[in-house]
Computed example of a mutant assay.
Amino acid sequence: MKDWHCKCGNLGISCSAIFSLYNTLGDNVQCRTWHLAGLPVDTFSVDNAIVVSHSRRWPLMIDPQGQARKWVVNMEKENGLQIVKQTDPAFLRILEISLQKGQPLLIEGVGEELDPILDGVLLKQTFTQKGVEHVQLGELITEYHPEFRLYLTTRLRNPHYLPQVTIKVVVINFIITQLGLENQLLGLVVAHERPQLEEKKNRLLVESAHNHRALQRTQEKILEVLSTAGQNLLEDEKAIDIMSSSRVSMNVF
């Protein structure tokens, strides 16, 4: 990274002195939401979550402590998350229903090999029939909902995945870091010794996330008004109303 930075400087290319995935792709409101869902607050975990949300391939998360599973379950529970193992008798049926309804699916307990029936889903080899997207599951063809999301987790600490697997998924190491462990232990101690304080902290985190989300929506409304308003902004009643309500909201924050 240092060599790359030096070469950019020699070529007159502007670049940050310290690279940060969060500063490049992160979203403050989204990160707060992730933390509320159980994502550890350390930079390593946040970067992992950013990769999960931006990757074109479905994530296979190395998760011996269950951190990623907890985060995914809390994050997707309102969206009808389905949880299954490859060894479950109803695995294929649950996969098919999730694909059709666009429900998020968590396949947990993955080993070092993936069921070949997942190939079409992992590679996103969809095709259109009668105007509807479909995907093939072995010999079965089923509808593919555009809102479908897939997560895979493994409890193996040091799995060895062959290239045939790694080209189909993005492998992400969610092993807990020292900072993440310290924060969790601190939370457990505070929850035991001062439960009211821990409850207040969680409540403030929720309020903060809601406020930042509302602030972001307000900013988007203002930008929309400015881009669509005519030459005389003061004569646009809709623009004036939105600006006035936005001012009230800003004062609240």
Rank of each mutant, 00 (worst) to 15 (best):
S98A: 15
G109R: 10
V135S: 08
K85G: 14
R93Y: 08
V121K: 11
G111N: 09
L106T: 12
L118N: 11
G102T: 07
K101T: 15
Q103E: 12
G102V: 12
N74A: 06
E143I: 06
E96G: 10
T154W: 00
A68E: 06
E78Y: 00
D88M: 01
D115Q: 14
K101D: 11
R149K: 14
V135D: 07
K101C: 13
G80R: 05
K130Y: 10
A68T: 10
D115K: 13
I94A: 14
Q65K: 10
M61V: 09
R57G: 11
L152M: 15
G138A: 08
K85R: 14
Y151K: 05
E78T: 10
Q136M: 15
K85E: 14
P146F: 02
F148M: 12
L118P: 13
L140C: 11
L152T: 02
Q103Y: 12
M75H: 01
F148P: 04
L114C: 10
Q65P: 05
W58V: 05
S98Y: 01
W71N: 01
Q129R: 13
K70D: 11
I94L: 12
K101H: 11
E139L: 05
H134D: 04
S98M: 03
G66K: 00
K77P: 04
G131D: 01
V132P: 00
Q65C: 10
V135W: 08
E76F: 02
E147V: 02
E139A: 13
E112S: 07
R69V: 10
R57M: 13
E143Q: 12
I107Q: 01
V84E: 06
E78M: 07
W71D: 01
L150K: 03
F91L: 03
L118Y: 03
E113W: 05
T87R: 12
E76G: 07
E112I: 13
T153M: 02
T153C: 08
I62R: 08
K85I: 03
L150W: 01
L122T: 01
E112R: 02
L123A: 15
N79T: 09
V110R: 01
R69H: 04
L118M: 12
V110S: 05
T154K: 00
I107V: 15
Q86R: 03
A90C: 10
F127C: 05
R69P: 03
F127D: 07
F148C: 08
W58I: 02
G66M: 02
P64F: 00
Q65D: 09
L123M: 13
R69N: 11
E139I: 12
L123I: 08
T154I: 06
V72F: 06
E133I: 14
R149M: 07
F148A: 08
L150R: 05
D119G: 13
Y144E: 06
L81V: 03
D119N: 14
D63K: 04
T154N: 00
W58H: 10
G138W: 07
Q136H: 11
E143L: 13
D63P: 04
A68R: 06
L114S: 06
M61P: 05
E143H: 09
R93K: 12
D115T: 13
L123V: 11
T154S: 07
G120H: 04
H145S: 14
Q103P: 05
G120N: 11
D88L: 00
M61H: 10
E133A: 15
G131I: 15
T87D: 09
